[in-house]
Amino acid sequence: MTVVPTVALTGVTKRFRGTAALDDVHLTLGPGITGLLGPNGAGKTTLLRITATVLTPGAGEVVLFGTRPAGPEQLAAVRRRLGYLPQEMGHPRGFTGFGFVDYMAVLKEWTDRAARHAEVRRVLELVDLDGVAARRVSALSGGQRRRLGLAQALLGDPDLLLLDEPTTGVDPGQRVTLRQVLSRAGERSTVLLSTHQTEDVAALCDRVVVLDGGRVRFDGAVADLVATAAGRVWLADAPDPAARASWRTGTGRHRVVGQAAPAGAEPAEPTLEDAYLLLLGERARTTGVAA
């Protein structure tokens, strides 16, 4: 039996004023959590928008759940099965947290009031916001608003969950809560998670896609990307200006990521961040990865 992938992007290209935000991207996604890494301007948000059907590609084909969402009916059918958290998620004025998610639930065709309210309560509890649901959105912290955005994306347990930097502004304790929510979602749904947080990808994802300049630079298992840094990370007593990156750690020793071992250095266990730095080189350093 042929398994239909949730997402199949073929040769997807998108240009803005002549500059390619995405350039001939091929990507197939099925159930599980895929991390999307890349420097600012790499095309991550454009890729998520196109997959979420809110942006049309300039060229190439987008197939979701085996359907090309061309007409209004196919588009609505696809959108019934997806949850989307945009990078910038504002909230209409005057809503409480519950009221905002309720508003989004109406847009997601939850017309029965009792069932809708039960679903709103469920997703607010999932992201640990049930205690502040009666507060105005304007009175919530940045991290709470981000979790509110995630709550609306989780409405109806979507088969495809597209999240653009869901952990931005979220404190470490809440980040663990969100990881639990996302890992449960990834057991049955397809989750594409765009982030600058390599540790979120390492903790949650079984697969990672690295975008740079609109092109896919790496697509594979997280362990495989980490393995590319094996033998290229050391702990040394002094910084190494010739290395791709080196910094003083909390122990007083210097972590060195590069091609050649500095004198007297000892090998260190590579992380996903090390592998990312080595893959993207200067671009990763200048645009930055939040550690």
Partner: peptide, 14 residues
């Protein structure tokens, strides 16, 4: 007019 416009677009509501 609607700060949640992008998220609203991704819903099935016409």
């Amino acid at each position: 007019a609607d700060p949640s416009h992008e998220a609203a677009l991704a819903t099935p509501y016409p």
